[in-house]
């Protein structure tokens, strides 16, 4: 593996979870090109199928960012999502996927800059793991043009 490998990262972000305008602006305009932002109306909209699709497509790391439990714009959309997505990650881990490839961040109003920290943390984990191999049935091998 060359040191120049950059992981492919997907962020599923609830549109309400970044109360800090600066953070949202950064997400909307400054994200580095290897990070893909998928904004959803609520964490509750993130079907495990989306996560699976990203993994199979060769995403090296996934960040799922949502609101703190009691702060959901739709009252309890994130509660259902948390249960499902947590169980789904356990299930994929059971099938051999490295647990660290899927990371959750439940962000509170006051936590300015947390999203950047989470992304950096995820990237560090993924760099240590290397490119995704298991379950990535549609991945384009590293080194080939994307």
């Amino acid at each position: 593996m060359s040191d120049k490998w950059t992981p492919r990262i997907v962020v599923f972000q609830c549109q309400y979870c970044l109360y800090s305008e600066a953070d949202q602006k950064w997400m909307d305009t400054q994200l580095p090109p290897h990070i893909k932002l998928i904004q959803v109306p609520c964490t509750g909209r993130i079907s495990p199928l989306f996560v699976l699709n990203a993994i199979q497509g060769g995403t090296d790391g996934i960040l799922i960012s949502g609101c703190q439990p009691e702060k959901c714009h739709y009252k309890e959309g994130n509660l259902g999502a948390r249960r499902q997505l947590d169980a789904f990650r356990r299930f994929l881990t059971y099938l051999g996927l490295e647990e660290g490839r899927i990371r959750f961040a439940w962000i509170d109003v006051s936590e300015r800059g947390r999203i950047q920290q989470e992304l950096a943390g995820l990237e560090k984990t993924i760099q240590a793991m290397g490119p995704i191999t298991r379950l990535a049935t549609r991945a384009i091998p590293v080194g080939e043009k994307r």
């Binding site: 495990p48 989306f50 699709n53 199979q56 789904f88 299930f91 994929l92 379950l135 049935t137 549609r138």
Partner: peptide
Amino acid sequence: RWTESMITPGGTQAWHIVRAFHQA
């Protein structure tokens, strides 16, 4: 098509994963 479901290795893996997961 929210996830691959074609008759390919990936589609079949997705079938097994999601079918099982729907039974959680």
